[in-house]
């Protein structure tokens, strides 16, 4: 029995949780990882989080990689590694929930990660500018930068069991004609990713307590922001140049979100909820609206 125990400790078994937003390729990334691990003769599993997914809304996916057969079919609650395709998800979700001490965190961001947002455990942190690489390598789907390939590239730095050539092969087979840009992005991310060792004091315990309330009539009440602050879904920010604006209200009527308001004879964008679809930019007859890349510090 002793021997068996030792064997099970020695065996390679990684549970990876991927966080991002719809359209960034979270589920695809999970599949690519699983397929690559499979090509490296491991057992692998890829599970998307089931729910009403929308392009732009928070999305989760799970990957298990093991030397032995995987019998679980559940979501991953205590991951060895968390891949965060979009740092903004951290504001709405506890992405580090259940992360094991000594685990890995891969974040796609262009800014520096402050220690305060990280959990109080020892970690290997990998930072990569996924959006920057996606923009540079022209990796866009429907106008959104696709950061999944750069994040996989960065992940390979802390996960030596999958060769980057294997991933390259999987990507080439998966995307066929369009795979060249993805492969370039993969290598670019692998080379430019920054690996940091972070030593935490102890595991932070969080208790979520909710007061039970009395509900007499189960009817929903109108509220602004039922899906949270949807401004976090934005990749590009529309900016109005008021010197060109003639207040024709084309942007106001066409905004799908209703986050352009008429205030004192001017149109004002509510950046708390603007999802950054840039419809306003396309309907502006005077070209008074421009787009800027969104950078959250």
């Amino acid at each position: 029995m002793r021997g068996l125990d030792e064997e099970s400790i020695e065996e390679l078994r990684w549970e990876i949780r991927l966080h991002g937003r719809g359209g960034q390729g979270v589920v695809t990334a999970s599949k690519i990882l699983a397929e690559s691990a499979f090509a490296e003769r491991y057992h692998a599993q890829s599970i998307p989080f089931f729910g009403a997914e929308r392009r732009g809304s928070p999305v989760m996916a799970f990957t298990r990689i093991s030397e032995h057969e995987i019998r679980e079919r559940s979501q991953i609650y205590t991951p060895d590694c968390v891949l965060i395709l979009d740092p903004l998800v951290m504001r709405v979700l506890d992405v580090f929930n259940g992360l094991k001490d000594g685990g890995g965190v891969v974040i796609s961001t262009s800014s520096r990660i402050s220690d305060e947002i990280l959990p109080d455990i020892s970690l290997t942190l990998v930072v990569v500018d996924g959006v920057g690489i996606a923009l540079k390598k022209d990796l866009l789907v429907a106008g959104n930068p696709v950061v999944n390939i750069p994040v996989i590239g960065a992940f390979l730095r802390v996960f030596p069991h999958i060769g980057i050539e294997t991933v390259e092969k999987v990507i080439s087979e998966k995307f066929k004609r369009n795979s060249k840009r993805s492969v370039k992005a993969l290598y670019s991310a692998y080379e430019s990713a920054e690996v940091l060792k972070i030593r935490g004091k102890k595991r932070a315990e969080k208790v979520y307590s909710k007061k039970p309330g009395k509900i007499w009539i189960p009817a929903s009440k109108p509220v602004v922001g039922v899906a949270g602050k949807t401004g976090y879904w934005r990749d590009f920010r529309p900016v109005i140049n008021y010197s060109r604006c003639t207040n024709c209200l084309n942007c106001w009527i066409h905004c799908p979100e209703g986050s352009i308001r008429r205030e004192n004879g001017e149109v004002v964008i509510d950046y708390d909820y603007c999802k950054g679809c840039l419809v306003c930019l396309s309907v502006c007859p005077r070209r008074a609206i421009s787009s800027e890349r969104e950078v959250f510090a």
Binding site: R54, G225, A227, G228, K229, P256, E257, G258
Partner: peptide
């Protein structure tokens, strides 16, 4: 367009996709 009332009945912060045609029409 200024004759169309400014009151909003489809509130912002809903979970429609970016550039959703149906939320545009519903508004």
């Amino acid at each position: 367009l200024s004759e169309i009332p400014a009151e909003e009945y489809l509130l912002e912060g809903n979970s429609a996709c970016h550039g959703c045609g149906s939320s545009m029409a519903l508004r």
